[in-house]
Computed example of a mutant assay.
Amino acid sequence: MTFTSTATRGGSRLLLAGIVVSGFGTSAMWLAAGIWVKDLTGSDSLAALCAFALWAPTLAGPLLGTVADRTRRRPLLVAANLGLGLLLLSLPAVDSAGRLWILFAVLFAYGTCGVVTDAAEAALVPAVVGKDALGDFNGLRMTANEGMKLVAP
């Protein structure tokens, strides 16, 4: 991959590192949530509902993507990730089947923020990488994203 400046190279590396860490965390959380629910309830159906709660917001992707289009992207990415980090702190409260709603709410919010941040990230990439390296970086970004789905388990 060729870059026009050292600043662009550093920004793209930082962005790619964030994508790898985020992808690993999302995949690990999705799997752990299903196992957690299965352990608490013994229900395969409720365990599968974890995946649904996390991925259902993608159905509203075009609507949620407008948030990224109408907002400054860097502050949006920082705020969304910090907010999700705080939201994840509520998960230790899920200690029984009666409190599973907290887990499902967190997963749904996580999925919703994921759709918004994916749109913001995709729009931010050309500014960080540069148009000459955009194709290479997008291929690397998708490889890293999908690779974390294999590595996390």
Rank of each mutant, 00 (worst) to 15 (best):
S90E: 06
A79D: 05
G61C: 06
A133I: 05
G114R: 04
G18I: 11
V21H: 07
L150Y: 14
A7D: 06
M142G: 02
G130N: 06
D95S: 15
R74Q: 12
A105Y: 01
A144R: 09
T71C: 08
L100Y: 04
N81C: 11
F3R: 02
G130Y: 08
R99Q: 10
A144P: 11
P153N: 11
A133Q: 03
Y110W: 10
D44C: 03
T66S: 09
V78H: 05
F137M: 04
F108R: 00
L82S: 12
P153E: 11
A80W: 03
F24E: 08
S5N: 00
S43M: 13
L86I: 14
L14W: 07
L49A: 14
G111P: 06
V128G: 04
Y110N: 10
F108E: 00
T4D: 14
S90A: 15
P62S: 04
D136Y: 08
D69L: 10
G25R: 07
M142V: 15
A17P: 04
V129Y: 02
D136L: 01
A51Q: 07
E121C: 10
L59P: 04
A152D: 10
G147D: 11
A17M: 12
V116K: 02
N138E: 05
D136R: 14
A17C: 11
A152W: 12
P92E: 06
V37W: 09
K131G: 13
A127W: 04
L82T: 14
W101C: 01
S5W: 01
C113G: 10
L140Y: 08
S5P: 01
R141N: 15
S45Q: 13
E121H: 09
P75H: 08
S22E: 13
C113K: 00
V129N: 02
V94I: 11
L49P: 03
R99H: 14
T112V: 03
F3T: 01
G61E: 05
A60P: 03
S12H: 03
V115E: 04
A32M: 11
L31Y: 13
F104K: 00
D39V: 00
S12N: 02
F3G: 03
K131A: 12
E146S: 14
G42I: 10
E121Y: 08
G25Y: 12
V37P: 04
P62G: 03
G114P: 10
C113Y: 02
V125Q: 01
A93P: 05
K38H: 15
G130L: 05
R70C: 07
A133W: 02
W30S: 14
G135R: 08
W30K: 12
T117S: 08
V21T: 13
L86C: 15
A60G: 03
T58P: 00
P75V: 02
L14A: 14
P75G: 06
C113S: 12
V125E: 02
R99M: 07
L63G: 05
F52N: 01
S96E: 03
V37R: 06
L76A: 07
F137D: 00
L15H: 12
L40F: 14
G114F: 07
L64Q: 06
G11M: 03
F3C: 01
V78M: 13
G130D: 07
M142D: 01
V115K: 03
G111F: 07
V94W: 09
V128I: 15
G139C: 04
L87I: 13
M148Q: 11
S5I: 01
A48M: 14
G61H: 06
C50L: 03
G65A: 09
L54I: 00
